[in-house]
Structure formats: C-alpha cells, structure tokens
Nucleic acid binder design. Structure first.
Lengths: 143, 143
DNA sequence: AATAAAATGATAATGATACTCATTATAAAG
DNA sequence: CTTTATAATGAGTATCATTATCATTTTATT
C-alpha cells in the first residue's frame, strides 16, 4: 500500500496522526508482509515513543484496521495479528509452517494450482482453511 | 465421519471412553456440521452428565482434536470452535456472516466458482481468507 | 479387597484484549 | 496568545477464553 493511499484513508476518516499513532504506523510500514501481534508492535513502537501504552496500541491497530489500512487476522494461536494492507482486493493467502510457525504470504487464486505451486516451491501441504466473509441472505435482505 | 472410524481412532490412541467423554462425543455427533465453542459443548453435555466441568470439556476437545476426530478451528472472534471431522481430506470451507456471525459450511474448490456460487445463493461476499497449513521447505528438509 | 494409575471438577493462574478514568495534549474560538 | 472544549493517552482494572494445579474420585490391575 502506498503512503499516498494511507494518507487518503486517514484523511477521509479525519484521523489525527499523533506521535504515538505515527510511531505505530511507521512500525507497520517497516514490517510490510509480516504479521505482528499487538505486543510485537508495542515493543517496536516504544523505540520511537518510549511511554507508549498497550491500550493505545490496541486502539490504534483497531482503528487502522477499520480504515482498511491494516488487516487484522487470526491464525490458530489465540491472538490477532496485524499487517499493512498490500492491495485493493482484500485477498489474503497465507502459508503457516506446522513446525516453525513461520507465516508466508502467497498470491494465487485457485486452490489446486496453489497447492501445486507451493509443492513445487518445496512446501509440504498438510491442510488448508478457506474462510469467506459475507452477509448471509437473511442479513442482506434486512439491510 | 462414521462411528466405526471414530472408534478406530480412539482405540488406536488407547483412549478410555468415560461417561463425560462419551457425553461430549455424543454432543459433537449430534451437531455434525456445526461449529461449537467449549461453552456450547459444556451446556449441551451437561444434559447428559450434569456435574461435568469445563476443564474436562477443554481436555476432551483437545484430545479428540489430536486424534483427528474433531477439527479445532478459530474464526475472527477470539475463541476456538470444534466440529466433528467429516472426511479424510481435512478441507474446511466456511462462510461467516458479517452481521449475525452465523457460520455456514460450503463445499466448493475454486475460489471464483465459490464466490459465484455463494452470490447465487443470496450471500454478499465481502472478503475472504485462505490459510494453508504446511511444512515450509526448511522444516521439510530437516525431517 | 488392596494398590496403582488415570480422570475429574473446583478453583486459581494466565494471557490477550477491552474498558474506565484521571491526566495531558491538541484544536477552535474569542 | 489565552481560554475552553474536545480528543487522546497511559495506568490500571476488568473480562473472557483457556490452561494449570491439586485434592478427590473413579477405574483398572494385582
């Protein structure tokens, strides 16, 4: 995601960019493609804003997610991870290594292609999960 | 998943089927295709085993997951959900309604097909996430 | 029946996240 | 500029899901 687009999103949301928010955003920009937990962000951002509190980190990460500047994702570990949005179409594709837990980004569209692609890269695919976020027929009707 | 296969998995794991474990397993079998939280399971299973404690529920759900009798999954809500395994290939496909949170099972393989399929059923697809579980090249090599 | 091993339930501990509130920083108005 | 209103912050507390502990009970083995 470009700085320009980030700015645009913040502006149209009338979001004041305080020192601590700037620090958090900078950390996210310096870690493109990585999936940081709130604690990760706190540790990094405190290098820039030493008194930063964890509450502000959560508040800011949530707000930035709601502006679609960050993705908020959950893997199988009971906590959220945040990542700078990379493109317009909202698609996330991740590989999680079952041994070391390393999370790698991928950019394919079809599952079978994807699996073959990964295996050609040396991965051993064990399982996968696809979640679609949608409004169900009932809720769509009510809106 | 057939009763026969469940039995087989429990037997090869030498898993004693106590009253409380039986109650929990029964609840899972009565709720095929649904995604129950630990609290859901507790509430249902207490109808069969009134003194059942939450600790036993967690212990049992975890064990059954490790025997591949249950799937343990996490959606964007900060808690785990459990579901009786349905087939051999471990594929999960879910739709989550963004308004009511309802989780629906789906059985398609290609993303675009899937999306069209859902939209023809009246869903409004907003986003999706695909997670592949694998051993990364490094870890695969080390094994 | 006696003994050892496993399972249970109650409760406490933990970890991630959300909430509350007094204090501080920023913006707008005079 | 000051004053005043509004928003943001950090510390601490609360909450929720999950895990760990431990005394008691159940089950299996001798």
């Amino acid at each position: 995601m470009t700085d320009r687009l980030i700015w645009q999103r913040l502006e149209e949301s009338n979001y004041r960019l305080t020192q601590q928010r700037q620090a958090i955003l900078d950390v996210m920009k310096e870690n493109r493609g990585k999936h940081l937990s709130a604690e990760d962000v706190l540790a990094e951002a405190r290098k820039k804003a030493p008194n930063l509190g964890i509450a502000t980190v959560y508040r800011t990460l949530d707000k930035l997610s709601s502006f679609e500047v960050l993705y908020k994702t959950v893997f199988d570990e009971g906590k959220y991870r945040y990542e700078l949005c990379e493109d317009e179409n909202h698609r996330h594709h991740h590989v999680i290594c079952l041994s070391c837990g390393q999370i790698t980004e991928i950019g394919e569209d079809l599952l079978s292609k994807l699996e073959k692609h990964l295996e050609s890269k040396g991965f051993e695919v064990v399982d996968h999960q696809l979640i679609m976020y949608a409004n169900c027929p009932d809720c769509k009707r009510k809106k």
